[in-house]
């Protein structure tokens, strides 16, 4: 039964996007931005993502290998919305940003992505953590952080850090220069390898325990 549920056809069906909901959701967020400004919108996005992660079940793994297996299969909450691969034990690569289709539907049906989506990211980068290109990254990165906190591997809570993201309209955001060597060291990749990875993928991040 489980195999039936997770076969490619079924996954494709589950993963199919619904332009109506995606576009309406972006406009809903813009409405909040209009009323509450970048600061209010940022709070809303973070609350949205945290609330989503908290509504999902907690996870426990006995070893890092078990966790990696679940992560790569998309069975872990942290990879339930995106396809990932791991070039090293701690480095995670998102092949396609899960917001890509929604963004494409927006640009196709509404037009250029509203400025507030970038303005809110600037607010997030200066007040929370520098890693977001637009509102979508805020949701995604906040979700990953909150989801990681719900996962334990060998009794230790998983931690998340962002290295680089590129959005569907090709804007990118890399971790600040002073953080990058530390993050790359944890990811066990070089800056050249990061550049090479980003040619064909949308996001590079790390998961680790202390």
């Amino acid at each position: 039964m489980k195999e039936d549920l997770y076969d490619d056809q079924y996954k494709a069906k589950l993963g199919r996007h619904n332009p109506f909901v995606d576009v309406a959701a972006y406009l809903f967020l813009e409405d909040i931005g209009d009323k509450q400004g970048a600061a209010g919108m940022n709070n809303y996005l973070m609350s949205l993502a945290t609330s989503l992660a908290k509504s999902m079940p907690k996870e426990e793994y006995s070893s890092w290998d078990d966790f990696m297996e679940s992560l790569l299969k998309g069975e872990s909450i942290i990879s339930s919305f995106e396809d990932v691969h791991c070039p090293t034990e701690n480095c995670v690569v998102t092949e396609t940003c899960p917001f890509t289709e929604g963004w494409q539907e927006y640009t196709k049906r509404i037009g250029e992505f509203a400025d507030i989506h970038k303005e809110v990211a600037e607010y997030y980068n200066s007040t929370v953590k520098p890693g977001a290109v637009d509102s979508q990254c805020i949701i995604h990165q906040t979700f990953r952080k909150a989801a990681a906190e719900r996962i334990k591997v060998a009794g230790k809570t998983v931690k998340y850090a962002q290295i680089e993201a590129v959005t569907p309209n090709a804007d990118e955001k890399r971790a600040p220069d002073e953080w990058l060597p530390i993050l790359l060291n944890k990811a066990d990749i070089t800056e050249t390898e990061l550049n090479m990875t980003m040619r064909n993928n949308d996001c590079v991040w790390i998961l680790y325990t202390e």
Binding site: N18, V21, Y26, S51
Partner: peptide, 26 residues
């Protein structure tokens, strides 16, 4: 992902803005 996140907010939204508020929002 955005749609699922939005659904997780319905409870929160109806608690804060009330059911009528949620209808007005939607």
């Amino acid at each position: 992902m955005l749609d699922v996140a939005l659904v997780s907010l319905i409870k929160n939204m109806s608690e804060k803005a009330g059911i009528e508020g949620a209808i007005q929002y939607w």
